[in-house]
């Protein structure tokens, strides 16, 4: 692939968009959308990331092989998070069955009482907003 010279005006537009999105993500954080606050915050962060990667990091103008390399990092990360969560999240299921096998982390029992995993007390983000 040839190395294109991206016009300064393009960089400035991306910079402006990133600043607007930063202000937006702060502003919406103060609105109570419950669980969707996280969805919106992460959506904005991903959009910002795509702007940085595609223009500042020139991926948009680069060889497809680099797209593959960059994209693979997302895949590996998803595998790491996915496999880890299938473990941690399913440990809770055994607790529900009353089949608690071995102590699965080092938090003392008295601490566990006032800070049970979210699956127990339903303390999800924003659930108090009624």
């Amino acid at each position: 692939m040839e190395h294109p010279v991206v016009p300064v005006s393009t960089y400035l537009k991306i910079f402006a968009a990133l600043m607007v999105l930063t202000a937006l993500t702060v502003a919406v954080a103060f609105i109570d959308w419950g669980f969707f606050n996280d969805v919106v915050a992460m959506t904005i962060a991903v959009i910002k990331a795509l702007l940085v990667v595609s223009v500042f990091m020139h991926l948009k103008y680069s060889a497809r092989l680099l797209w593959l390399i960059a994209g693979s990092s997302v895949v590996w990360f998803m595998v790491m998070v996915g496999l880890t969560l299938t473990d941690y999240r399913s440990r809770d299921w055994l607790l529900h069955e009353g089949m608690r096998p071995e102590p699965w982390h080092s938090v003392p029992a008295e601490v566990m009482q006032d800070a049970a995993p979210s699956g127990h007390n339903g303390a999800e983000a924003g659930s108090t907003g009624h």
Binding site: I69, V81, T84
Partner: peptide, 30 residues
């Protein structure tokens, strides 16, 4: 350019480990 991109995906996994820990424990103690 390809060399630095390969390095950067190892960095994604480096910070990714920290983000994974964050996700697990935030899920436990929101």
């Amino acid at each position: 350019t390809m060399g630095i991109w390969l390095f950067l995906i190892t960095e994604v996994m480096f910070f990714g480990g920290l983000f994974t820990g964050y996700i697990v424990y935030r899920g436990m103690y929101p």
